[in-house]
Every structure is written in C-alpha cells, then in structure tokens.
Amino acid sequence: MAFPTQVRLFEMSPRDGLQNEAGPVIATDIKVELINRLSACGLTHIEAASFVSPKWVPQMGDAAEVMAGIERKSGVVYSALTPNLKGVEGAIAAQADEVAVFSAASEAFTQKNINCSIAESLERFVPVIEAAKAQGIRVRGYVSTVLGCPYQGEIAPAQVASVARELLDMGCYEISLGDTIGVGTPLKAKRMLEAVTREIPVEKLAAHFHDTYGQALSNLYAVLEEGISVVDASVAGLGGCPYAKGASGNVASEDVIYLLQGLGIQTGVDLQQLVNTGYWITRQLGRHNGSKVAQALGEKI
C-alpha cells in the first residue's frame, strides 16, 4: 500500500501523558491550559481526561472539572477514557464528545492491570458501550501489549486480531493498537498489522506506539506504509504505563509531525506551536522535554 495522504494525530498528553506523573496532583488549571494550547495547534482529537477512581489514578481525579474548564474549539473532539459504567456516566455528564475503553492482547497483562481475564474485561464494556451509544457518543477501543507483554513476553498477532475484532463487533468505531512497553520493531509491527487487517479494515485502526527502545518512529513508518492513517502521540513524549516496567513514554507528537511532514503527509498541525506547547507543559511539570524535534527546533514565541 502507499502512504496515506493525510494522517489524524490523536493527542494523548492530557490523559496518558499526565496520569502517571509522580508527586503532587497537577493543578486543574494547568491541565485545562494544556488542552486549550493543544486545540490551538490544529489538533482535531484530544484525549482530555480519564473518569477513573482517584484512589487508583490521583492525577485524573478532577476529570469533570477539567472538562468543564476547557474552551471547546469547533472541530475538535474532546474524548475521555471510561473503564466502567460509573466512568462513562461521568463522561456523559461532563459532555465528552467521545469515550474510550481498553483491553489487552495479553492475559497476564490484563490480570495484572485490571484483575480479570480478557473475556471478562470485554464483558464489562458491554454496558459502557451501550450507555455511550444511547447518548449518541462514539466509543474508541484500545488494545494494549500488541507487540509484547512485560509478563507474558511475545504476543501472537492472531490474539491481537481476535481482541480487536471483539471490540469492533461490540460497537467501537476505531481500534487503537498499543505497543505498551515499546518493544516492537518494524517487521513485528507489519506482521501484527497484517493479522489484524484480515479481520478489520485498516481505516478503522490506529497506532499507539511507545518509544521505550527508541523504535516508535520506525514502527510508525512501517505501519504507515501499510495504510494506517491515525496515530496516537503525546506532546514532549509525556506518559508511560505504571504496570509496565521500563515503559518510558509515548512517542512525542512533535517527532511524529516532523516525520509526517517529511513524507508529504498532511496533518493540519502547526509544528512550531506544538513545540512551544511541549516546552510550556514540561516547564510546569519540571520535566525534560522528550521530543528530539523540539530540542532541535527550540522554543520560539
């Protein structure tokens, strides 16, 4: 297949990027401003919050306040992660444009992560998806550990395809395939995608590749060649997985946009404005900016 002419970047930093930050809970107004700044960059899909128990994910405890505080820009979809019925009810009340549910291709990871089997995790999503669809809200599905598991090791591509198919059949409009611990390499990524696309059209798939081993951009190039046109990324490379040892973070949105621009692929995103946003949020967090492109271009106000 040829490269897509246009790619939709799904910005993960307000949720996946911030949810595991150690130390004090990040102020609501910082989260709100991050989302507003991202909206101004030309991004059309932003995962803004996660409606989970603050006992387990303290950084997401103010999800309703964040959703209420953002300046909603026309043409931008503000989504929320909703692991259960209480979560989706909260997201609906907060007027999330879209919600997401998550499972994994690894039985061991699912047990460690949410204390149930893959089949049980999918069963739990039935009322979540029904509640969202009753309100006319689209549901996105995530499949974690598609290229490897910290507990189980190798994951069979057919298993990834099976879980992805289940989520699609349950009513998810799009399935995001996640290399949670970043162990994948380009050929593995292609083989995994080949198996999944036997079950699901490539137009309904997204790539969510972590950069733990520095392979995320190579893996993205590989799946872009196969027709993937939706990419999950996080500004400044923020984020990681608390249940996956060594999972250092998401691929940086700035690096993805630079790659796509070099391939002549349209994104509608202002790269320099995105770089500036990455520098702004890393200053608020007292963190190093993990984007190579941001480091090369520098902040320009």
Results as ranks from 00 to 15, higher is better:
A158Y: 01
L167D: 06
G141P: 04
V230T: 12
I175R: 06
L224Q: 02
Y213G: 00
Q159R: 15
V196M: 09
I155N: 07
C241K: 01
A189H: 08
T180H: 11
A164M: 07
R198Y: 01
A195Q: 02
G237I: 13
P150R: 06
V143I: 08
G136Q: 06
L238I: 00
D179C: 06
A233R: 08
Y142N: 09
G136K: 03
L193H: 10
T197M: 13
G239T: 12
T145A: 13
A161E: 11
E199I: 03
G214M: 07
E199A: 14
S176D: 13
K190F: 00
A222R: 01
G153N: 04
E225M: 05
I228N: 12
P186K: 04
R165C: 05
A158Q: 15
L238Q: 04
L187F: 05
K188L: 10
M192H: 07
L168N: 02
K188P: 04
G178R: 04
G153V: 04
C149K: 11
L193E: 07
G153Q: 01
L168E: 12
G148Q: 06
V183G: 01
G237Y: 05
L217C: 00
G239K: 08
V143N: 07
A207W: 15
E226H: 13
L217F: 04
G182N: 01
L217N: 09
P157S: 03
S176V: 14
V230Q: 14
L238S: 11
Y213S: 10
A207I: 13
T185R: 14
K204V: 00
S176N: 13
V231C: 15
H210L: 01
M192N: 13
E203Q: 13
V230L: 06
T212G: 04
A233P: 09
R191W: 03
P150V: 05
L177V: 13
P186W: 02
M170W: 01
I137Y: 05
G153I: 06
S229V: 07
R198I: 01
Y142T: 03
A206L: 08
G153H: 06
Q215K: 08
E194K: 15
P201T: 10
T180D: 11
L217V: 14
C172S: 11
E225L: 11
E225R: 14
L238C: 09
A195H: 07
C172I: 01
S176H: 09
E154I: 11
G182K: 02
L224W: 14
L187D: 15
K204C: 11
L205F: 00
E174L: 14
P157Q: 12
M170E: 07
A233M: 05
V183H: 03
V202M: 02
S176K: 07
Y151D: 08
S162P: 00
I228T: 11
E225V: 05
D179Y: 11
M170C: 02
Q159A: 10
G214W: 07
A156F: 02
I175P: 00
G214S: 03
V230G: 00
L147H: 06
S218K: 01
T145I: 10
